[in-house]
Amino acid sequence: MTLPPLRRLAAAALLPLLALAFPAQATQYPLTVTDLAGRQVTIPRKPERVVLQDGRNISILAMLDRDDPFARVVLWNNIPSRADEGFWNILRGAWPKAAAIPDMGFGDNGQVNAEQVMTSRPQLVVAEARALGALKEAGVDQRLAQLNIPLLLVDSFDDPVPNAVRSVELLGQVLDREAEAAEFAGFARERFARVQAGIAAAGTRPNVFIETRAGFAGPEACCFTQGRVGWGPLVEAAGGHNIGADLVPGASGEVTMETVIARRPDIYVMTGANWRGRGAVTLPFGYGGDQGAVAKSLARLEARPGFAQVEAARSGQVFGVWHGFYNHVLNIVGLEALAKAFHPQQFADLNPDETYRTILARFTHIPAQPFLISATAPRVGG
C-alpha cells in the first residue's frame, strides 16, 4: 500500500525515533556490503587504519568517529587544505594531530600514491565512485585486492542527493558506527522530504543556469557548468530545471555567454569559495566568508560583457552559493539554499543556516564557526 504524501512525511519524521528505540547492534566481521558503485566488498575485520582518496570525506568520519575523526586515518589526499582552507584550519585546531597525517597531495580525480598506500598498511581504502576509473588505470584496485585490502566506493557527486546519505550509512556499517549514521540519515531525509513537499506545492520549475566555479578562471571567463552530476542533480532536487543538462554532453563543460542569453534562464546561480588562484575573482563563501566581499565579487562578475542581457540578471534573480556543496555529505544545506532561491514563497521559513548549525551541533564535534552559505547578487543596473 502506498502512503499518502503527508503520511509519508510523518513516517520519515519517525525514523530517527525508531533508530533510538532499537539501537544498532555491533557490526559482525567479516562483513560483505554493496558499495555505491554496486560492487560487493568484503571487510575482513573492523577497520582501524583507513586511507581516504578524497579528503573531503573526513566530514563523514566527523559524524561517525565524533570524538576524533582522524583516529583511523593513516593517509589521505588532504583536499580541504587546498580547496577549503577555513575548514582545514578548524579541523587542525580541534585535532592538531591531523596536520601530521601524510598527504598524498592530489586532487579529486582519483590519483593516489600507490606506494604510500601500501606502506601505510591500511585495513580499508575509501574512495569516491568517480575515482574508480583512475584507480583501475593505475592498477591500484588490483594491488589492493592482491593484498586483501578492501576498496570501498562512496559517492556524493555522480548521484549526490540519495548517495551522500547512503555513503554515511555504508561507512557507518563498515566502521561499526551504525547508530551514529542512522541519526544523521534520519535527519537529512526528513529535511529532504520537507523540500520535496514544498516543490510539489509550487507546481512549477524555473529554468536555472548554474555557473560553477564562477570567477575562478578570471574576471572575464564564462561559463563553466555541470550537467547530470554534482550541481546538476542538486538544482533538479531543489525544484529547478538545470539548463546545463541540455547543453553539455558530459559531466561538465563550457557554455558561451551568447548561449546562456538565448536560453533565457529565470534564475542564474554562481558557485564560489575562498580561492586564491592567480587572477581569480573570489566569491569567498564558507568559513570566514564576508558578505561585503561576496557582494563586491558578484557585482564584478555581473559586469562581464553581455551579462546584463541575461534574463535572470534583468529581473534581479542572480544568486551565489558555496561551491563545496556539489560534492559534500552536507549537500542538504546547499539544496535548501537553492530551494529557497527558486521558490521563495514556499520556503519563506526555510533556514539553511540553522540546518547547518544543527548538523554540526547534533551529529559532530566540529567547533561552531560562522559559515557563509549563500547570497543574493546586486541587481544589474542598480
Rank of each mutant, 00 (worst) to 15 (best):
R56M: 02
T225S: 08
M257C: 09
T358G: 05
R362Y: 05
V51A: 02
N77T: 12
F106N: 06
R379K: 13
G218H: 06
R49I: 14
V310F: 04
G253A: 02
A280Y: 06
A280S: 11
P102H: 07
D290W: 06
G218I: 04
F319P: 02
P30A: 07
A201K: 09
A339E: 03
I199M: 07
A188K: 04
F285P: 01
G244P: 01
K340A: 14
E128C: 01
R300L: 15
E48P: 04
R357M: 11
F342N: 01
S120D: 00
R45W: 05
G324R: 00
F307N: 04
G382K: 08
F106W: 05
A308N: 15
R278C: 04
R300Q: 15
V73D: 00
R362H: 10
F187I: 07
Q142F: 06
A24F: 08
G215T: 07
V168F: 04
V73A: 03
A12F: 03
G107E: 13
Q53D: 13
G232M: 05
L91Q: 04
N163L: 08
R300E: 10
G382E: 15
A179S: 15
L301C: 04
V281M: 05
N327H: 10
E169D: 01
V125L: 14
V333K: 09
I101D: 03
M104E: 12
I210V: 10
A114T: 14
G139W: 10
T355E: 12
A83L: 10
I366S: 00
A131T: 13
R263C: 09
Q173M: 05
A127N: 01
N351I: 09
A181W: 08
A237V: 04
L64W: 01
I359S: 00
S120Y: 15
V154P: 01
L153Q: 04
Q291K: 15
V195Q: 06
R8K: 11
A339S: 00
Q291H: 12
R130D: 11
E336T: 11
W231I: 07
N163G: 04
G239R: 00
L234Q: 11
E178F: 00
Q146Y: 11
R228H: 10
N274G: 12
A221Y: 07
V165T: 15
A299H: 07
A114S: 08
A145G: 07
P378Q: 12
N89F: 07
P344E: 09
G38M: 09
I366H: 01
V51G: 01
Q28R: 15
V112A: 11
A127Q: 05
G272L: 02
E48G: 12
F187M: 10
A83N: 13
I261C: 11
I58G: 02
A348H: 12
W231R: 06
Q226T: 10
R39V: 13
R39L: 11
I90D: 03
F216T: 08
A182S: 10
L247W: 07
F325P: 03
M118C: 11
